[in-house]
Design a protein around this nucleic acid. Structure first.
Length: 245
DNA sequence: AAGACACGCAACCGCAAACAA
DNA sequence: ATTGTTTGCGGTTGCGTGTCT
């Protein structure tokens, strides 16, 4: 479901010319994720463009911000949007419109992008179909109110709500999965550090990340969101909390 | 088995607001 | 007050994957 990294440029392997200084676009490689994650985790964010520079990423600050906000932030929820959350989205969208960031702010762990995608790909379609059906019945042309929609939502979305116990969530940085999966702690991801448990996350095509976070604290930090690590564990990691300002 | 189509998601783009110099 | 920079937001696109025919 997730695209393989096309790694928009052909310069990544360090052919040090001016091309190498060009800004990268396209999907993020695990190595870039790692750099960004470590940079923000240990040093926080002054400005996003400085983050990009300090992490030696050939990305715009804007791109770094987006990647962090939508994917790398450890406080993101990894499970699918629940029925309850969907009801909230529908109800808020009807009352305030497409203000996705506002809607996201009411739903901890969800991003505006995620909600927007969810709306565009699923809910809107269903509402339109419902509205059309309503018109065909000679009913009002307005979209069905949230309360009515709930019934349909319930009927169509039950499968989404029961996310089984997934050891490593689908949406989780590959390098983090590698660490958790026994990669770094046992001497780094050398050899075949199979990202098998991350099947649908970004597979790096050949340029395997080194996962060279030489600090086992990182393992705890990266995984705290899913494994219910106590928050005070983070306090043991100097500078770790700077990122959350 | 193969091609067409639909779906879901990551990321880009353009714009506007906020802020700094 | 003006100009330049950064950040945040919403709309949109591109593309990998799953499903259907």
């Amino acid at each position: 479901m997730v695209r393989k990294p096309s790694h928009g440029d052909t310069t990544s392997a360090g052919n040090g010319g001016t091309e190498a200084m060009k800004e990268r676009k396209g999907l993020w490689s695990p190595e870039e994720d790692e750099r960004l994650f470590i940079q923000i985790t240990y040093h926080g964010v002054s400005t996003w463009s400085s983050v990009a520079q300090l992490a030696r990423l050939r990305r715009s600050g804007k791109s770094c911000r987006l990647r962090w906000m939508n994917y790398l932030r450890p406080d993101l929820k990894k499970e699918p949007i629940s029925k309850r959350e969907e009801e909230i989205i529908i109800s808020l969208q009807q009352s305030i419109g497409n203000r996705w960031s506002t809607i996201a702010a009411t739903m901890p762990g969800r991003t505006d992008n995620e909600i927007k995608n969810y709306w565009n790909s699923r809910i809107r379609k269903r509402l339109n179909a419902a509205a059309k059906a309503g018109r065909d019945d000679g009913a009002s042309t307005k979209p069905a109110p949230a309360s009515e929609e709930k019934l349909e939502v319930e009927a169509t979305n039950n499968a989404d709500t029961e996310a089984g116990p997934v050891p490593i969530p689908e949406r989780f940085p590959v390098f983090a999965c590698q660490l958790i999966d026994g990669g770094i702690a046992g001497g780094g991801g050398s050899g075949e550090n199979t990202p098998s448990t991350t099947s649908s996350t970004q597979q790096n095509s050949g340029e395997e990340s080194e996962a060279s976070v030489g600090d086992s604290n990182m393992i705890h930090f990266i995984s705290f969101d899913d494994l219910d690590y106590p928050a005070d564990l983070l306090m043991d990691l100097p500078g770790a909390m700077d990122a959350w300002e």
